[in-house]
Amino acid sequence: MVKAAPEVTEARATGPSGEIVVALAQMAPRLGDLGANLARHLELIGTAAAGGADLVVFPELSLTGYFLKDLVTETALRLDSPEIQALAEASREVDAVVGCILESDDHRFHNAALYLSGGEVVHVHRKVYLPTYGLFDEARDLAPGNRFRAFEAPLRSAGPRRPWRAGVLLCEDLWHPSSAYLLARAGVDLIICPSASPGRGVGHGSELGTAQSYDVITRTYAQLFTAYVVYCNRVGYEDGINFWGGSRAVDPEGHLVGEPAGRDEAMPLHRLDLAALRRARIANPMLRDERHDIVDAESRRLHRRERD
């Protein structure tokens, strides 16, 4: 039987370390204004670092805004763009996840999240699921990513316990449970979810329908995959469409860490702890018991059938 994580490592030390502080930079980007947004990022990164954060997470497309249409190509960056270099420099103080349009060498444009640390781009996630229905039009302008990968998050103050493994899911990626499953199988402790979720649905109580959905999704994934989920949604309005904020951290038992943010700009800090994750996985060892062999066998069978 295949074990939960492909690379099972021994805990390097015991004890209470393994604690990190994550800042959720719930902000409202200016649509298509890279310069203004970069300045705001650097300011918030400085604030997060001064507040003792190990990681600051920005929303999806935080450097550009969301409903870009023809601005996609005009705001696109490359990994060697000065804006990314400036943010990478800032990440010497605190790790950061930022959102941008990333252009490939063959001129495809991706909705991407970059994990920056110590002056480097440590990890790039290109959004796989590009919503193209209802008010969404992403696949018209963007190319999809094709992988969900876990990575070791530097988080230097995490201490000697063991490194944190993290993965990124961008907004619509979260609506596909296979995405979170793959990250869990890759052994993540932390699922980082930058989002630009438009608020809609005002007929089902005091929370927007979209807010209720993300509440269910983030708490469910955290509990079922016994991992921390940090969700950073943007706020503000674009062409009349509101973004509802509600950024939150959820612990590996599915409980909110502190309070979710409201609908205004905010940068809450949340303390996440590998010791709590360990306790959750002892109490609920679903990852240990997960039958990846069945998933693989059934996937192969279904794949053959779909092909025929």
């Binding site: 608020g199 005002v202 007929g203 089902h204 109580g205 005091s206 929370e207 927007l208 503000g236 309005y237 009349g240 509101n242 609908r263």
Partner: peptide, 24 residues
């Protein structure tokens, strides 16, 4: 009650809409 809306929520969204779209 298919047309029922949460008036406090609607008011908050519309207020933010006018404030932001006017000021920006």
């Amino acid at each position: 009650g298919a047309l029922a809306v949460d008036c406090a929520l609607v008011t908050e969204i519309l207020t933010g809409f006018v404030r932001e779209e006017v000021r920006k």
